[in-house]
Design a protein around this nucleic acid. Sequence first.
DNA 1: CGGTTTTGTGCATAATTATTCAGGGAATAT
DNA 2: ATATTCCCTGAATAATTATGCACAAAACCG
Lengths: 157, 157
Amino acid sequence: MIMQTREERHRKILELVADQYIGTQTDLEIALRKEGVRVTQATLSRDIRELGLVKIASGGRYRYASQKIIDSSTTTKHSMHASLASVKRFVRKIDWSGTTVVIITDSGAAAHVAEAIDVLELAEVLGTVAGDNTIFLVIQRDMSAKKVVKHLESLLG
Amino acid sequence: MIMQTREERHRKILELVADQYIGTQTDLEIALRKEGVRVTQATLSRDIRELGLVKIASGGRYRYASQKIIDSSTTTKHSMHASLASVKRFVRKIDWSGTTVVIITDSGAAAHVAEAIDVLELAEVLGTVAGDNTIFLVIQRDMSAKKVVKHLESLLG
DNA sequence: CGGTTTTGTGCATAATTATTCAGGGAATAT
DNA sequence: ATATTCCCTGAATAATTATGCACAAAACCG
């Protein structure tokens, strides 16, 4: 089975929905085909779920978009999230200030990455909020945000 | 035409999706019926579009959620607010770190709880961000987040 | 007032999306 | 190598959502 790698496809999907008006999964299928990626609607339905994209009314029409905000707390129990290793490719930068860790990701990928971090259930992390390409982790007050950064960096390889 | 006003229905829809796990429009139809509101799926499809709700993967399943983030910085434009007492049951945990207060709520309830807090117009609070189950309150830099936590806790009983 | 427009809704159905099932390929174990 | 397992995918289809149409109620207007 010839696969352009699923990773690459996911990246392209995030780019495409950020860039152009993708109203249906078939639209996305066509847009991807122009990029040299050929998959069926069924696969895109799965991709969209995994990337956490949403279809939303925009100007009277519908379009796919990356969630503006998703959040997660360390109390979240839901299973079936992407692993950190699998989202590593989206992470551009990690830094911290005070008790907040800031993670910069590729555009549109923050929600996805945040979920992967959330699943780690790091004890030092009080909560997480992700926007489009930025994630905030708030760290427990007597803990070292720097240490959390180190830890995340090691997990990311 | 029997209706308790469209507006009231919209309000109930927001409550329901924040409160419980609504996976399909038919789920919503049923939930509304229990509240004494009877409409068809077609109408709910229209309502959902107008309210800007989105269907998103959450824990391997789908659910409807509000896409809007409540980014209140006392810019409260919503008219109907729940009182703190009435949202108390959604609050799971309150903690703080640095100048940020983190509130964890039941899944989907963060926006509602945030609104209730917002209405208080606490002077120390610079702004609020709410996702699905996490709220961040950013406190003025020389103020005590701890004190705000205490205050909230006392208000919550 | 009577006529016109606007709005909101259900019904039926089209359009879209999610999932089941089967199979292929890669990785791992025997 | 062969078998086993796991992951990914397409095809077909089930499930869900969006919408064209018709109509009734409300709002607007002369």
